[in-house]
């Protein structure tokens, strides 16, 4: 078992170090069945949830570039009420821990979202997504807003490449683990958005290592372009104890299953066997 919140009174234990990143799985039900077996995941990180619905902007084209794609990300979601209505039944009988991903929002809205989700008693933890332009004060404010409204562990997902000053502020405010990192901003042609793809992975590794050294004892979750079992291994060796899979779900869902199978039996302190 891996504990993403060993210092927390409730803890957050996973039987596999792998989970989908927010935005890549949905809100619960396995859309990738039978290509991907949900029971091989350590947890499900939900798509972003905000109190009010957010519609995607005009559909700018996806730009395919070397190493991945650039995609406008407006965190579209149908709003908390609808998400709860559509998924509550699944959440109640979810076979693996659920982590609710909440983008930073107006503090009042964020507080109401956390309270409503916490009251359902179906989640094992929350992951707060900080925006790319967040300041340390913002990181502290959002994190405090989250933990004031729940007893569950709060993970904080940092903007790329995992800015240490934001990490420090979030940890001081009560976060128990860090996710490194959100997809980097990028632009190509008429498309401006975030860069997703295997090309992110190599850029991520030094930052993972730096975070693990700067915040010893804090669980670090790697996220960004992990497309192969070797990528998972490299992240764990760089100091992460778990990893979120993102663009590999889009590029090749069959490969996700291979990564999950490969990671079966891996322990946090035990580097994965060579692929």
């Amino acid at each position: 078992m891996i504990d993403l919140a060993p210092a927390h009174k409730i803890g957050l234990s996973l039987k596999s170090p792998l989970m989908p990143a927010a935005g890549f799985w949905g809100y619960g039900p396995n859309r990738y069945a039978p290509l991907v077996s949900a029971e091989l995941l350590g947890a499900i990180v939900t798509n972003p949830m905000t109190l009010r619905p957010r519609r995607a902007g005009p559909s700018a084209p996806v730009a395919e570039v070397d190493g991945g794609i650039i995609l406008p990300v407006d965190l579209p979601n149908p709003g908390l009420k609808k998400i709860i209505r559509q998924n509550r039944k699944f959440w109640r009988r979810a076979p693996i821990p659920l982590i609710a991903h909440l983008p930073a929002d107006a503090p009042d809205d964020l507080a109401r979202t956390v309270s409503a989700l916490d009251a359902l008693a179906v989640f094992a933890g929350f992951e707060l997504g900080l925006p790319p332009d967040a300041s340390p004060a913002d990181a502290a404010l959002f994190t405090r807003t989250l933990i004031r409204n729940t007893d569950l562990p709060a993970l904080v997902k940092l903007p790329f490449p995992g800015k240490p000053h934001l990490a420090e502020a979030a940890l001081k405010a009560g976060a128990v683990a860090l996710t490194l990192a959100d997809a980097p901003p990028a632009a190509a042609g008429t498309t401006a958005g975030r860069f997703f793809g295997g090309g992110v992975h190599a850029q991520l590794l030094p930052h993972l290592q730096h975070a693990a050294e700067t915040f010893p004892g804090t669980p670090i979750i790697a996220c960004g372009g992990i497309h192969t079992p070797a990528d998972v291994r490299a992240c764990l060796q760089a100091g992460a104890i778990a990893a979120q899979l993102d663009s590999v779900f889009w590029a090749n869902p069959q490969q996700v299953q291979q990564i999950l199978r490969y990671a079966q039996g891996a322990k946090s302190d035990d580097p994965l066997p060579s692929p």
Binding site: W25, R31, Y32, N47, A56, P76, W250
Partner: peptide, 10 residues
């Protein structure tokens, strides 16, 4: 796309 299966909401 990108997911084609109802997972990303995009």
């Amino acid at each position: 796309r990108p997911c084609g299966v109802g997972a990303c909401g995009l």
